[in-house]
């Protein structure tokens, strides 16, 4: 590589965003080229200086308080039906906890769900890649359901949805959100769908959907069970399956 090319890769290199092969090439070049080595030194020094420079501004407490107050006020004005229904609490408690609700919403609920989305999609991908889609391959719900008994401390519902166009492929044990879960596998046309099921202490919650790494994810809570569906199937049909599972 020429010096110019090397210089173009210097930033990704010091940011650890450069792939291994080119990193090695760059290091070799720097070994023999004082000018590029010097550039590296300068950039690294700059990073260190910024890092040590404590350039972060801290938000003033007065601002925190006034934003909180503004949120409470906004919540009072704008309580439209449907908004924040997850956080519905009786009476005046709502307004007082609006800021807290935002905290829970942004800080806690979503990252937790975000992490779970990732886990679910990774579980889905793993099942496809490892060629380990099912532990019990069967299109018969009366084979799949009893198979889970004894392996899990709960009994997932396994449905025959062939008539609706979702073929049961089988069942598998998986591990998500720190516990063993049932993975029930369906297929629609060429699309594989993993339905992960496990018990939860949460109350019923309607479907939510997200796209993660190119896969569609739909999840909801019903009767003490969390359901997470992952597939490359389109969202509409994935939601259709979600509806059929708890029909």
């Amino acid at each position: 590589m020429s010096c110019k090319e090397i210089q173009g890769l210097m930033d990704p290199y010091i940011d650890r965003e450069l792939d291994l092969v080119r990193s090695i090439e760059l290091e070799r070049h720097m070994h023999d080229c004082p000018s590029c080595a010097r550039l590296h030194e300068d950039r690294a020094a700059l990073r260190t200086a910024i890092g040590a420079g404590s350039l972060r501004y801290r938000a003033p407490d007065t601002l925190k308080k006034s934003v909180q107050a503004a949120l409470v006020e906004r919540d009072r004005q704008e309580r439209a039906p449907g908004r924040w229904r997850w956080f519905r609490l009786p009476g005046p408690v709502i307004a007082a906890t609006a800021a807290a609700a935002l905290l829970i919403a942004i800080w806690w609920v979503r990252p937790v769900e975000g992490a779970l989305q990732r886990e679910v999609v990774e579980g889905h991908i793993r099942s496809l890649m490892a060629n380990h889609l099912t532990d019990v391959p069967s299109t018969d719900q009366h084979t799949v359901k009893p198979w889970f008994a004894g392996k899990l401390d709960f009994s997932p519902t396994v449905k025959d949805l062939t008539a609706e166009g979702f073929t049961l492929v089988g069942g598998r044990l998986d591990y998500l959100d720190n516990h063993a879960v049932a993975a029930i596998v369906y297929q629609r046309r060429q699309h594989v769908i993993n339905v992960f099921v496990w018990p939860t202490s949460e109350g019923d919650r309607g479907e939510r959907a997200a796209v993660r790494q190119g896969y569609n994810v739909v999840w909801f809570v019903r009767s003490g069970m969390a359901y997470w569906l992952a597939s490359d199937l389109n969202p509409a049909e994935l939601r259709q399956l979600a509806g059929l599972l708890i029909r």
Binding site: R110, G114, Q117, A210
Partner: peptide, 14 residues
């Protein structure tokens, strides 16, 4: 923050 609060429905995970 007011926008985040208002448009929270627009948040799609992550």
């Amino acid at each position: 923050y007011l926008r985040a609060f208002t448009f929270f429905d627009g948040f799609r995970g992550g």
